[in-house]
Simulated assay, not measured.
Amino acid sequence: MARGQGINQELSDVLNELWKLDVNRMKPGKDYKINLQGKAGFVAEGSNYARDSARAPLFAYVNENKLKSIDTYAHFINLLDNYEMSTGVTEHVTHEELQENHLFLDGVLKTEVMKCAHRYLVCKGLAQSDPAQFKSQLYDIWFKLYRRDKSGGEDSCGFEHVFVGETKHGKEIMGLHNWVQFYHQEKHNHVDYKGYKARNNKDTPDEDDHVLNLQFSWNGLVKPVGSCFIGVSPEFEVALFTIVFLLSDRRVTNVTVKVDEYLLEIVVYRFGRSIGTSYPKMISSNNRDF
């Protein structure tokens, strides 16, 4: 493995352990099928026009029975309609929505993926061993509301930005780095997949990849390039991004890891004691150029 890539080996080892434990990860070709189609084109800054290189949706099939029957997916999906889309609009959390947040975290904490992440963070002195205290820490990281737009009240949180997506003054897409939300939005004709984004001509993705850089429009706004895991469980993403967030107190953390066959850059932005945004960027796959 080339040292020039700056791969963080310790973190890669931990994330590969999480990967092996992710029994709720969907299997490509069996639990879901994606249709990559064409390579997305250039979008001018500030423009909401993108050439459509993908006439069909990204997701040709997803096993909805699994989404409904696996606790963490089911609880995750219940959270997707809990937020105001635009920044600057104050979020009001109802008692029912609060309960849904806690049910999701309780479900995540029962998984072997999150138990492994918790043990690692305790060993690093970054989390308390008491599960209730760890849950409270996770709540602050992911669900504590903060002001993203200075003109309004508390209008955002890590979970909304990363997993649900939001818009800035109704003019720009922010976040939305989750495949389940993408699939749901696409199914309801709110998202239009425009094509994949390749890092270079040699690194074109294939339909079994679990990480994808892509271009899409959402309610008429264009995201020139976004990135997300495909098929992984909610607990895997929460565990991975929480670990990277807690390992550094920098405002922006960029770390290169090798997870399974993927060389990735994991990016995490800090917003005080909460996540501002987090996402993976595919660098390479299938052991090419390592």
Score class of each variant (00 low, 15 high):
118 H>T: 02
287 N>H: 06
72 T>I: 15
229 F>P: 01
265 E>V: 00
107 G>Y: 00
16 N>H: 13
147 R>E: 12
170 G>W: 04
1 M>V: 01
225 V>H: 09
103 L>C: 09
7 I>G: 08
284 S>M: 05
198 A>R: 13
111 T>K: 12
112 E>M: 05
165 G>L: 14
202 K>V: 14
140 D>T: 14
30 K>F: 01
47 S>C: 00
179 W>M: 00
26 M>C: 05
71 D>Q: 15
187 K>D: 09
108 V>D: 07
192 D>L: 06
23 V>M: 06
30 K>L: 00
55 R>S: 15
56 A>V: 06
140 D>C: 10
119 R>Q: 07
208 D>V: 09
26 M>G: 05
100 E>R: 15
186 E>N: 00
66 K>M: 12
160 E>C: 06
53 S>R: 11
127 A>G: 09
199 R>H: 00
144 K>E: 14
209 D>W: 09
209 D>I: 08
240 L>H: 09
66 K>D: 10
238 V>D: 07
174 M>R: 12
127 A>S: 10
241 F>Q: 08
273 R>G: 02
197 K>Q: 06
262 Y>P: 10
224 P>Q: 00
228 C>F: 14
182 F>H: 00
43 V>N: 03
125 G>R: 09
271 F>R: 15
61 Y>G: 03
250 R>A: 14
52 D>W: 10
107 G>C: 07
25 R>S: 15
114 M>D: 11
13 D>M: 08
186 E>Y: 00
287 N>T: 04
122 V>W: 13
118 H>V: 00
283 I>F: 01
251 R>E: 02
129 S>R: 08
145 L>D: 10
99 Q>K: 13
123 C>G: 13
266 I>F: 03
273 R>D: 13
49 Y>I: 05
147 R>M: 12
241 F>Y: 05
245 F>V: 02
104 F>A: 07
174 M>N: 11
262 Y>Q: 13
193 Y>H: 02
250 R>T: 05
128 Q>F: 04
149 D>Q: 11
110 K>L: 12
29 G>D: 04
244 V>P: 00
245 F>N: 01
110 K>M: 14
95 H>D: 14
107 G>F: 04
59 F>Q: 05
106 D>V: 11
141 I>F: 08
133 Q>R: 13
43 V>L: 00
2 A>H: 13
247 L>A: 07
134 F>R: 02
164 V>S: 06
285 S>F: 06
62 V>L: 03
277 T>I: 02
193 Y>N: 07
144 K>L: 14
85 M>P: 01
112 E>V: 11
46 G>P: 08
36 L>C: 12
101 N>D: 10
150 K>W: 14
281 K>D: 03
101 N>W: 12
208 D>N: 10
255 V>W: 01
148 R>H: 13
174 M>C: 08
43 V>H: 03
210 H>V: 14
135 K>T: 11
285 S>N: 15
268 V>D: 06
210 H>K: 12
26 M>E: 02
32 Y>L: 03
263 L>H: 03
181 Q>G: 05
43 V>F: 01
217 S>C: 01
98 L>Q: 14
66 K>W: 05
156 S>A: 15
192 D>C: 05
237 E>S: 15
62 V>Y: 02
20 K>V: 13
173 I>C: 01
